[in-house]
């Protein structure tokens, strides 16, 4: 029951309130998020595999395979796209630390899968009332698309409240610190590895130092301008990432196919032959349906 309460809090946006995001945390455990992704994805996978299970070949295997593949699809897409997102947001020196970013992305995947699971009965209803494989494929593409957009909307809302928060204003204490930084580094020359690691965390936890510019140039730039530029950079990175996530997800789904399972083909965990891609396949299916 506690599990559903947690998911409910996530969907209501209570877990990603501006106040907690500002403190750099999302009030929901990674374990809960992973369990949510696995169970909600599996639930929709069952509805998705129902078409093959009820077809002439009665492919029960497809039902099981789809319930494993749906959560795996989202998590693998995250695995493929997260490293580059991390590198580019660190390079732009945004406030987002890797673990928090990962948790936020997992939360958006959980939101996507919650909506998708809630579409389960719709898919089930159409499975019972239609014979057209092409229609079922496109219906699933549409439902995945809608859920994905909802997940990204959730992500964007969370990021907005994060970037607009005053956490980005450099604290006045940061500036007097700067001249002393080189001295600190020099003094620690002989420290061993463990000390260095603690030091790493301390350095990363510090507010952003002023940009590396001669003082006369830096003094002409108001600090707020840099922070808003930083938020703009972070937003741009996330926008580009969103597109990459979508394309990678679509292609990942193509590689992991079949999800619905053609009624004319025997059950296979993965289809052989990987030439072509997701987008070509959707256009072809659309052509089949219209002809």
């Amino acid at each position: 029951m506690k599990f559903f309460t947690e998911i409910d809090r996530l969907l209501r946006g209570d877990a990603t309130r501006a106040s907690s995001l500002r403190a750099g945390r999302i009030e929901i455990a990674v374990r809960t998020l992973l369990i949510a992704c696995a169970s909600l994805g599996a639930l929709y996978g069952v509805f998705m595999g129902l078409f093959a299970a009820m077809g002439p070949n009665v492919n029960i295997g497809q039902l099981l395979a789809s319930s494993l593949k749906v959560p795996l699809l989202f998590l693998l897409t995250l695995v493929v796209t997260f490293p580059s997102l991390y590198v580019f947001s660190a390079l732009a020196d945004t406030k987002l630390r890797p673990l928090e970013t990962l948790r936020l992305l997992l939360a958006s995947v959980a939101v996507t899968l919650s909506l998708l699971a809630s579409f389960g009965p719709v898919t089930g209803f159409f499975t019972l009332s239609t014979d057209s494989y092409a229609f079922m494929k496109l219906l699933n593409v549409a439902l995945f698309g809608i859920s994905g957009i909802a997940g990204l909307w959730f992500l964007r809302k969370a990021l907005d409240s994060l970037f607009d928060s005053d956490r980005f204003l450099p604290s006045p204490a940061a500036e007097p610190d700067l001249p002393s930084t080189p001295k600190k580094e020099g003094a620690e020359g002989a420290s061993d590895d463990e000390d260095e690691q603690e030091d790493d965390d301390a350095v990363l936890a510090q507010p952003l130092p002023p940009p590396f510019m001669p003082s006369q140039v830096a003094s002409r730039l108001p600090p707020v301008r840099r922070t808003s530029a930083e938020a703009a950079r972070a937003r741009l990175i996330f926008r580009v990432w969103t597109v990459i996530f979508g394309v990678v997800g679509a292609q990942m789904a193509w590689i992991m196919r079949p999800f619905v399972g053609s009624p004319d083909l025997p059950f296979e965990l993965f289809r052989k032959g990987r030439v072509s891609n997701f987008f070509e396949a959707v256009l072809q299916t659309l052509g089949t349906l219209l002809n």
Binding site: A90, D93, P98, P182, E185, Q197, D199, D200, L204, F212
Partner: peptide, 22 residues
């Protein structure tokens, strides 16, 4: 982010011992 990835993070963010002024 602690442990082995910390130097990578510092490098990308140009902080600490990887900063231009260190």
């Amino acid at each position: 982010m602690t442990g082995r990835l910390a130097p990578v993070e510092l490098l990308l963010r140009s902080r600490g011992r990887f900063s231009a002024s260190s």
